[in-house]
Nucleic acid binder design. Structure first.
Length: 103
DNA sequence: TATTTGACCAAGA
DNA sequence: ATCTTGGCCAAAT
């Protein structure tokens, strides 16, 4: 396979397509890139060289849990709340309805 | 080059 | 329902 682009760069590309008020999962992103590196995706987010350009706070765990965040999980929850996504005890409310898939 | 590190995931003595 | 365990893959050490 000819991979010119960095793995992480591709993550940001897809993540940018997630509309406000929706969320996606690490797994979905990996799937969109035809890869199973969901962990590597999270790794890329943590580095997050494109801080304000990429909505990393819209990426959550595939189990419906919030996951982590470079500036603190709490902060992430707050931001999601501002976009209309409610979180209850570290879990997304109506997760299946808020999640955005790339299919 | 080899080993370790995660913002993960799915399954289960 | 909750916790543990093994597997996963790119990047950093």
């Amino acid at each position: 396979m000819v991979r010119k682009q960095k793995f992480s760069e591709r993550c940001y590309f897809f993540l940018r397509k997630v509309p406000k008020g929706k969320v996606t999962t690490y797994k979905e992103i990996a799937k969109a890139m035809h890869s199973k590196a969901y962990r590597a995706v999270g790794n890329a987010m943590n580095k997050n060289p494109y801080a304000p350009r990429v909505p990393c706070h819209r990426v959550v765990s595939s189990t419906g849990e919030i996951g982590g965040y470079a500036h603190g999980t709490r902060k992430k929850i707050e931001m999601l709340g501002k976009e209309g996504i409610k979180v209850k005890n570290e879990k997304i409310v109506d997760f299946e309805k808020k999640i955005y898939k790339f299919d």
